[in-house]
């Protein structure tokens, strides 16, 4: 299968100290990737490099074999969607907010057309926020806002979806629903990359895991191979037993 994105020998430093050093990895279509690692390991930085918000000091990031720098911002917005860790919520209605995901697709002085409206409605349906469509985003709960943000990203209809801790403020039901959604998106062909703190969500839903620690890729692979007690001890500095899920056989990390 052809690679969708490649990160080649990328180094990024905010000040003098590199956050990521000489990082290389590839992302393929139709897979749901989890990125895990302790705080400060460079997970968010990786996502920001993947969507071109940050430019690497060395190395390059490729989308469909072309370096990100060869794309215009507007074109990139049609290929890669990002759900950042922090969003601002102004008094937009839910529908207006989701329609913002369509802005790369219509002109500066234009308005969203019928097709845009249709796509936005589908995205709201998928994210389960249709019943909120007339409400102001600023009046919603944290979990509802998160789902609206997800719908906005879905409305971009991109090949790549990047999500920085999309489940952090959600209750258990919505954490699981969000992961199911991303899994479904990847099965439709998208490349989904999510930074997640809950290793069990990663183990339960992701097809492939990248483990980052202090600036580098420590290990990558399918969850069953990656999540060994030795690795978890090495990276997170805690000793936990690893069990296997009685139904799926996937790893379960039980602290």
């Amino acid at each position: 299968m052809v690679d969708r994105m490649r990160v080649e020998a990328v180094t990024y430093a905010y000040e003098a100290k590199p956050v990521l050093e000489d990082l290389t990895l590839t992302l393929r279509p139709s897979l749901f990737y989890g990125v895990v690692g302790p705080n400060g390991a460079g997970k968010s930085t990786l996502l920001k490099l993947l969507d071109g918000y940050l430019s690497p000091q060395a190395g390059a990031v490729f989308l469909d074999d072309l370096p990100l720098s060869s794309y215009s911002l507007a074109d990139l917005a049609k290929e890669i969607a990002m759900v950042p860790q922090h969003s601002h919520y102004f008094p937009f209605t839910v529908e207006e907010m989701v329609l913002l995901g369509r802005t790369p697709f219509y002109s500066r002085l234009g308005k969203p057309g019928d097709k845009d409206m249709k796509i936005a409605r589908e995205a709201m349906e998928t994210a389960g926020v249709t019943h909120l469509s007339g409400r102001l985003v600023s009046d919603l709960s944290g979990g509802e806002r998160q789902r609206v943000t997800l719908a906005r990203a879905f409305a971009q209809r991109t090949k790549v979806l990047l999500l920085d801790e999309p489940t952090t403020h959600l209750d258990l039901e919505h954490q699981i629903n969000t992961c199911r959604l991303l899994k479904a998106k990847s099965e439709e062909g998208a490349t989904c990359v999510a930074v997640l703190h809950d290793l069990n969500l990663v183990a339960g839903f992701c097809d492939y895991v990248f483990v980052l620690d202090s600036g580098g890729l420590v290990k990558e692979g399918v969850p069953a191979e990656v999540f060994t007690p030795e690795l978890i001890h090495k990276v997170f500095r805690v000793s936990v037993p690893r069990l296997n899920h009685p139904v799926t056989g996937r790893p379960v990390i039980a602290p």
């Binding site: 918000y53 507007a74 074109d75 950042p84 102004f90 802005t103 790369p104």
Partner: peptide, 12 residues
Amino acid sequence: LLGEEAAHSLGI
């Protein structure tokens, strides 16, 4: 208004 990162990813 969505924030810098989100705006960037929407082509701004």
